[in-house]
Design a protein around this nucleic acid. Sequence first.
DNA 1: GTAAATAGTGATGTATACATAACTCGATAT
DNA 2: ATATCGAGTTATGTATACATCACTATTTAC
Lengths: 224, 224
Amino acid sequence: MARKNLDEFAYKAIINLILGNHFKPGDFLFETELAASLGLSRTPVRHALGQLVAEGFLDKKKKKGCFIPLPSPEDARHVFYARENIEGLTAASAARHATETDIDHLYLLIGKEKKVANPGSQKAKLEYVTINENFHLSIAKISQNKYLEQYCRHIFWRSHTYIFFFDKYYTELDSSGQKTGPKQHSAIVSAIDNRNQEKAGNLMRQHVRITFEQLFMTWQLNFN
Amino acid sequence: MARKNLDEFAYKAIINLILGNHFKPGDFLFETELAASLGLSRTPVRHALGQLVAEGFLDKKKKKGCFIPLPSPEDARHVFYARENIEGLTAASAARHATETDIDHLYLLIGKEKKVANPGSQKAKLEYVTINENFHLSIAKISQNKYLEQYCRHIFWRSHTYIFFFDKYYTELDSSGQKTGPKQHSAIVSAIDNRNQEKAGNLMRQHVRITFEQLFMTWQLNFN
DNA sequence: GTAAATAGTGATGTATACATAACTCGATAT
DNA sequence: ATATCGAGTTATGTATACATCACTATTTAC
């Protein structure tokens, strides 16, 4: 394995574990264990964990260690409220800065999204999640603002804590039998394509809010 | 000195140096040097620097070190565009969540701000900067959203790279001889007090944009 | 005289040894 | 029986030694 920079290597390895749901909320990430399994010393692992804490992907108890944050309805509300608004900003900004190539790329993603098989299987779900991620982060990138993109990436990943609740969303069909996800995404891209900043922002906000509401409905059913 | 946690101690010490303009853009921050001057080993210093890089307060060249980011008109545009919109969000959210105590606190700050002596002296300028910081970050806190607050703090501090251009802004008076800064702040607090989210957001966006435009004017004058 | 090669210097990158504090669990006292 | 004290265990906190790479300056070849 060609590993030019162990800090970065460790960071990527660990965040992939986190975002891939290899840990449960409350699980501790032991420096020694991670170091051993990645085949390096504690130093770069420790460095990576520090960054993940700073970014809010992990919580930390002093002299105890780093652990996966515990999800809560309140945190979910904060995450999705922030995400709704931040992504509203990136979408609007994307409508101002998108090139032809950018827009082609977005249409391509929606095409792929529509073709994902009926998402009963775990594989199809993963495929869907990946395309969805790509869609949202592409728009952030197109916004052409380093800082908004940074915040958008952050809050998007942060919302992944809650993503395993999303089965319902991925399978939902509207009255004409079409998947609702690609439909909403299409509308957003159209607005961007038409350089309609306000509409792009509004549609994105609406899209994220719907996602949240479906999540929350499901959650209430699960926990009450 | 009671230092329970050296990582944190180093972080705070270094970020204070950065925000206090102890370094010039492009300056390298040497681990060895900082460690020596803070009286601790390279380890916690290194940890702190890593976080500061992750947060965008420092840039990094591999195997070379961390340095103060170079300001540029383009970066300034990105910073202030993001700040304008993020602070627009926090102001709007603050208008929904502010308690009586919160609003009293904001009025208090404006009172102090008005009383700051004619800011010719360096001391008065510093005083002004501190109150201004307190004002903006208080509103972020009142927004009651952990993530928006985090982003707001970050982008606010990030804009400090440019703050030393701001003399003009602090001294500017309107046609009736009043300082423009407190006047704009007053209008924002009134909107929050009246629970007018949209107006609070708009006024805050406008306020930040004016700040940027004055900065940029001054900058153009200095550099062209 | 100029350019390329190279040795020297000083910083970061990495591993490891030791210090310290939190948790565990059992023993003892009430 | 329960509560408290304390020793043992283990993971983090910190310092340091060594490795490595980037830069610099000097030397050497043309």
